[in-house]
Every structure is written in structure tokens, then in C-alpha cells.
């Protein structure tokens, strides 16, 4: 199995060797590339799903053997959930009752985010580098949309967002989740939470050399929930009017049958 993976990756390396060579004259210092693979591009999840680990295999190509021996390469693999505009609301006390007052909406933030890396991401690269590529729980891109006033409370809402996502199990990290299984071949384990959102996720792998971001590779991964519960939920969104009419018919039948069954006269 391992040998097969290696031959496969070797074949991939050969196929991509030509363009790499062509670029070498202009930027000789950057030759490393990442290749990753997952066994499937779709995961079916049943209603009793309690969370699972997803293993991603990959290899560094065109690496410098000396740097590799000095462990100068770092890999960060993230599983990003489907993106949506997410609003954080804050309750405040008004006339004795708790009311949602302030809010901030972050543009297309991932619903879930599972991070796996060779070591703590903040030790891998400077914060500015991580912020610019949006890698790491503290560096993920959270851009507010709409009116935000003087912007003084952005960090407050970002912190609340990350805290809620982490306590809910949607955002997680594993600083030892990426392991080298041979010189340049690695294995990354990312966690799928029990309440993993339905939709297209992206596996995004990042290669760093001595604190410098070198290259990125992404693969889509579709998460499809199965079972009766999900079928009903899908119907509620796909055919909302027929779903509503069905709900009324069901209620009318229940009431009518009850009146026949329990008829006293």
C-alpha cells in the first residue's frame, strides 16, 4: 500500500517536473511544491455520526535534502468548512432585560475549521505571514461587512467568534497532527466534528520553509449528510411550499382520523 502510494507520488512528481524546471532560471530559490491526496472527494455522514478523523497523505517535491534534514520544512493542513456570512451578536441589559444590541457580520467565514500542523502554527511563521494567507485559528480571515463605526470593537467580536466556534467544536487545532512518514512523505490528520456542516469543504495544505510560505495545494471535499432526517430537512429547503402543504395535510389527516376514532355518538 505504502509502496503504491510512493510510486503514485513519484509519477506525479515526474509529470510536474517539466514546468518546475522551466521556472528554475528565474526563481531558483523556490522549487518546492506540495502534493496531497485523499481517498475520496465525498464523505457520507449518517445521523448517528459522532465525529471522525480524516487522514490526508502528501509529499514535498523538489525539496532541498539539507533543509529537510535540518527539519526546516513545516506543513499546515486545514479543513475549511463551507463559507457563509456569519453574524456575531452581543446581548446588553436594557431596562432589566437582555437584548441583542451590537452585532458584527464577517464576510464568508468558514462554518468549521480544523487545523493540523507539524508544530504550533505560531512557531512556524511570523504572525504577519499567517495573517496574509489566513492560516491558523488566530489568523483566519474575518473581514467585517457593513457599518462598523470606528472599528474599535472588531477584535472583541473576532475573539468572541473564535471562542464560540472553538467551544462549539467547530474550530479545532492539532499542533502535532502532521507527521513525516518518510523523508518527504507526510500524513496529516484533521478532525471532522460531530456536527460537521453539510456542503463543500476544502482541504488546504501549506508548505513553509524556515518561516517563509512557499506553496499551497487545495482539494475539495464534499460532506453529504444521509438518512431520513436529512432527506426531510433537504425537502424543507428544496421545495418549501410543497413541504408546508404536506405539513398541513398531515395535520388535517391526524385531526380528522382522531375525530373518527374517538367519536362518541
Amino acid at each position: 500500500m505504502m509502496r503504491l502510494a510512493r510510486t503514485l507520488l513519484a509519477a506525479l512528481a515526474l509529470a510536474s517536473a517539466a514546468p518546475v524546471l522551466a521556472q528554475e532560471d528565474k526563481r531558483p530559490e523556490i522549487t518546492e511544491r506540495l502534493e496531497i491526496g485523499i481517498s475520496t472527494d465525498e464523505i457520507a455522514i449518517s445521523s448517528d455520526f459522532r465525529g471522525a478523523d480524516l487522514t490526508i497523505f502528501g509529499a514535498i517535491e523538489g525539496y532541498d535534502p539539507n533543509l529537510l534534514a535540518q527539519r526546516k520544512y513545516d506543513i499546515v493542513v486545514a479543513l475549511e468548512g463551507p463559507k457563509d456570512d456569519l453574524t456575531v451578536r452581543r446581548k446588553e441589559r436594557v431596562l432589566g432585560i437582555w437584548v441583542n444590541r451590537r452585532s458584527m457580520t464577517f464576510e464568508l467565514a468558514p462554518e468549521s475549521y480544523s487545523l493540523s500542523s507539524t508544530r504550533n502554527v505560531d512557531d512556524i511563521a511570523p504572525a504577519a505571514v499567517l495573517n496574509s494567507i489566513g492560516v491558523g485559528l488566530q489568523h483566519i480571515r474575518l473581514d467585517p461587512i457593513g457599518y462598523i463605526g470606528d472599528g474599535s470593537n472588531i477584535s472583541e467580536f473576532r475573539d468572541a467568534f473564535r471562542r464560540l466556534k472553538e467551544t462549539g467544536g467547530f474550530y479545532q487545532r492539532d499542533p502535532g497532527g502532521v507527521q513525516f512518514i518518510s523523508a518527504s512523505l507526510f500524513k496529516a490528520t484533521v478532525r471532522l466534528p460531530a456536527n460537521v456542516p453539510n456542503g463543500t469543504h476544502v482541504v488546504r495544505a501549506h508548505l513553509f520553509r524556515d518561516g517563509v510560505f512557499i506553496s499551497e495545494k487545495a482539494l475539495p471535499l464534499r460532506v453529504v449528510k444521509t438518512g431520513l432526517e436529512q432527506m426531510i430537512s433537504n425537502a424543507a429547503y428544496a421545495n418549501p411550499v410543497s413541504y408546508g402543504i404536506l405539513a398541513v395535510i398531515l395535520a388535517a389527516l391526524t385531526g380528522w382520523i382522531a375525530s373518527i376514532v374517538f367519536r362518541k355518538d
Partner: peptide, 14 residues
């Protein structure tokens, strides 16, 4: 409340 903050999604991703 236990937490003053809450997150809601816009639902555009569905």
C-alpha cells in the same frame, strides 16, 4: 445569560 455573544449564519451558503 451564560454567554453575551451568539453566532448566526446568513443562510446564503445553503
Amino acid at each position: 445569560p451564560e454567554d453575551f455573544y451568539s453566532i448566526v449564519s446568513a443562510g446564503t451558503g445553503r
